[in-house]
Amino acid sequence: MRIVTWLITNAIALAVATWLVGGISFDGPTSGMAEVKEKLLPLLLVALVLGIVSAFVKPILKVLAFPFILLTLGLFLLVINAAMLGLTAWILPDSVGFHVDGFWAAVLGGIIISIVGWAVDRVWPDSDD
């Protein structure tokens, strides 16, 4: 059950980032039920890949970038979050239709995903804790 809540939380955060940031997008319709039907599976796939990338690559980057994180008082973590989002878009094939257009869109998307993920975790606590 914990994996399902984690995946749904990531998907919600990613959907909000896609909605708010112009440089993050999915291919396909832009409104109505057709959008929901066509983009739900790719959204869940991107959320899964983003979670896996963040679970395995992000800790390594944090260790390697520790001096920069310390020097910038943690602001370099925004760059690492942006890198995770960009890496996810790069890993996924074009058939998924997920795009991140540029560094600043990735930074803003990473901030939004972090904030929304935190908020959803507070509203919808995991029952295993």
Rank of each mutant, 00 (worst) to 15 (best):
L40Y: 03
L40M: 14
L40W: 07
L41P: 04
L41M: 15
L43K: 07
L44Y: 00
L44P: 01
L45M: 14
V46Y: 05
V46K: 11
A47F: 08
A47C: 11
L48V: 09
L48D: 04
L48I: 05
V49I: 15
G51C: 02
I52P: 05
V53K: 06
V53P: 12
S54N: 15
S54T: 14
A55C: 04
A55V: 03
A55N: 11
F56D: 07
K58C: 07
K58N: 13
P59H: 10
P59Y: 09
P59Q: 10
I60T: 14
L61D: 08
K62H: 05
K62G: 07
K62F: 05
V63G: 09
L64C: 10
A65W: 01
F66V: 01
F66L: 15
F66Y: 13
P67A: 05
P67E: 01
F68M: 15
F68K: 03
I69K: 01
I69P: 03
I69A: 05
I69N: 01
L70H: 00
L71A: 15
L71E: 01
T72D: 00
L73G: 03
G74M: 01
F76L: 02
L77Y: 02
L77H: 03
L78G: 06
V79R: 00
V79G: 01
I80E: 00
I80Q: 06
I80W: 03
N81G: 06
N81T: 04
A83K: 04
A83G: 09
M84F: 07
M84L: 07
L85V: 14
L85F: 01
L87C: 02
L87V: 10
L87G: 14
T88Y: 11
T88S: 04
T88K: 10
T88L: 04
T88A: 04
A89P: 06
W90I: 05
W90Y: 13
I91P: 04
I91E: 05
I91M: 15
L92K: 09
P93C: 10
S95Q: 13
S95P: 02
V96R: 08
G97S: 12
G97R: 11
G97D: 10
F98Q: 12
F98G: 08
H99S: 14
H99F: 13
D101P: 00
D101I: 00
G102H: 12
G102N: 11
G102R: 09
G102C: 02
G102D: 11
W104G: 06
A105W: 08
A105Q: 07
A105S: 15
A105M: 06
A106V: 12
V107N: 10
L108M: 13
L108H: 01
G109F: 06
G110M: 05
I111G: 10
I111R: 03
I112F: 09
I113C: 09
S114V: 06
S114W: 15
I115A: 14
I115Y: 08
V116E: 08
G117L: 11
A119F: 13
V120T: 12
V120S: 07
V120D: 05
D121R: 15
R122Q: 14
R122Y: 10
V123W: 03
